[in-house]
Nucleic acid binder design. Structure first.
Lengths: 205, 205
DNA sequence: GCGAACTATCTATGGGGATAGTTAGCTGAC
DNA sequence: GTCAGCTAACTATCCCCATAGATAGTTCGC
């Protein structure tokens, strides 16, 4: 049920169409939440039916039109209620670590390729998130500035701080994953490439 | 399709029944992969139909019986093939970070409760994983020792090292999450002028 | 010999999400 | 003036997984 709350979070900033939301999920908010349009449009209709949103037809060109969704008072209440609820932590499902635990079954080169992919994946994300932090600091984040424009000045510091806090956490996590992949690459080399005394030394007592 | 490979991974160690696998997913392997029995039993039957496993009826008491699954040559091939394939990194869905980005919407006490729950959750897991590392080092991990018994001595170092590497990565990640939650708690205090619940006996009005 | 706790397996239902494909209008460059 | 590329919205299908519950046999202590 988190897609609903992710949508509410975005729509509290500014009214948007399904298309806008789909773009937002691909870009700015991606890596915190992600959803294809085929989930977004039906969910928006369901949310409107539940009274959390109202959709208004907006003309678009001579004949075209689009549907812009606004959060209702009920929607705001629901969002606040969710924000105050405890999160449920489900058991993790971690393909990368599942693999790592059985990495002796992989060819050394395949193992290396996987660890490099892991590193590359998180390096890319880290760079994206670093860019986000830069945008927050320089006031060039469109969504954040819109949010600030609709919020009282007394809350600006908190809004900025929590956004920054979120991305800093993601960056630190990405850096941990990169480091972990690098230790893995060293381990693969040590177990396969190097000299046999080294390999023995790798065995923990 | 990773449940299938998680099951193969476990069954390469030793033949097991659906019930054994269900227990294994709840205990040892949990937090790397998890699945309820209602997924495991049908998947095992599908895997047998696909020729990856063979199931043999084993008597259990005077009238009872159970079905023990063994990995076939085709199953081993499939597992090795999967281990050599690159992993696909799907976009993340991270409720905790989604929340953090909009934490100004939550009551300060609710925000604190969430961050404490985050910390407690990862602290618990970290302790479980530390215990796993201890088991690996002291040779008291039943699964690992069974695995080693079936593997040539030349591979023992690698098997132990990859297992340890996996859990070390999980531990480091947990420690990062704990640290992040603590920075969050400090931030909430800073933005709200201190934590009123911290000095509960002499809380100022 | 009875009940409690455990072992063992299976079914049903529904939600969430991935992937792919369809339809239609708009905009701007060439 | 038309074609490519974008904006906008919707549909269909399949898989994975979560939750709940049904059924039956076993073991062991009292």
């Amino acid at each position: 049920m988190s897609l609903r709350h992710a949508l509410l979070a975005l729509l509290t900033v500014t009214p948007m169409t399904g298309y806008d939301l789909s773009k937002a999920f691909q870009a700015s908010v991606s890596h915190v939440w992600h959803a294809p349009d085929s989930q977004i449009y039906p969910e928006l209709r369901r949310m409107e039916a539940d009274g959390l949103l109202v959709g208004t037809e907006v003309p678009w060109g001579p004949r075209g039109k689009k549907r812009e969704y606004h959060v209702t008072a009920a929607g705001l209440t629901a969002f606040r209620a969710w924000m105050n609820e405890p999160l449920s932590y489900t058991r993790e499902r971690d393909p990368a670590h599942l693999r790592a635990a059985y990495l002796e079954w992989a060819e050394p080169d395949a193992a290396r390729a996987q660890l490099r992919a892991h590193r590359a994946n998180y390096a890319e994300r880290r760079d994206e998130w670093l860019e986000k932090v830069r945008e927050i600091d320089t006031g060039t984040s469109a969504m954040l500035e819109k949010r600030l424009a609709h919020a009282p000045a007394s809350e600006h510091a908190a809004i900025r701080a929590y956004k920054r806090y979120t991305y800093e956490g993601l960056i630190a996590r990405a850096e941990h994953e990169i480091e972990w992949a690098e230790r893995g690459l060293a381990l693969v080399d040590q177990l396969n490439g190097g000299d046999p005394t080294r390999t023995d030394a790798a065995a923990p007592a």
